[in-house]
Amino acid sequence: MTALLEVRSLGIRFGGLQAVDSFHCRLNQGEIGGIIGPNGAGKTTIFNMLTGIYPPTAGEIFFRGENLVGRPIHGFTEHGIARTFQNIRLFKELSALDNIKIARHMKVKYGFFPGLFRTEAVSRRENELEEECLSILERLSLAQYARHKASGLPYGVQRRLEIARALATSPELLLLDEPAAGMNPQEVDQLSKTILWIRDEFKVTILLIEHHMQLVMGVCDHVTVVSFGKLLAEGKPDEVKVNPVVVEAYLGKGGKF
């Protein structure tokens, strides 16, 4: 069986800085993968390469057997990769509903001129879209915020809305960049459940970056550790947790999770 995502010796240089060096990973359909590592390790940079934002200087990104390197950013989304950002990037001035509508962009199709005349068919499609988007919000318990401006929503709700927006593109692979950032332990606990639920409900494969070990250990099938751009270790969460190299990189000599 071919993997959904297969990354081979991926690397990127920023001038003199080798931010990521021969990174690789493999994710099968329905799995949840995790990337951990200290600050500045290059985790977000990996996501940026997996979504076309940074063109890698080396390596390949095979998604459903096709190398996506060299495509524009929206090409990655068209192929089924969606993401959230470490520092939330919602369309702040727009309502939650319009955020979702924009994410459905690829799923709405009608001609330019029918659009100008707003024909019956267009009108019908726009009505359906409104319902689709409201139902996505509902499934993520965001229905009550549909008409609220995104920037005015509480932080946790904004994070959830960003996940909803990513899911609205109907992805196969969902990349979450530190979804638990700024959350308290109870919220992290809740988030773990939500992530598992999302995988089953939306039938997506998930790759996430996290510093909260509790969350990573709880949901991930597979963990990759990076430090200073290099892949340190990979394996099942329990194996990685006790790997001396990892413990040292994270906590210094003699540290313990």
Binding site: P72, H74, T77, E78, F85, R89, K92, H105, T169
Partner: peptide
């Protein structure tokens, strides 16, 4: 609103 976010939503 946000060109990069727009691209990641599949908007050319």
């Amino acid at each position: 609103e946000d060109e990069l976010a727009a691209e990641t939503m599949g908007v050319n």
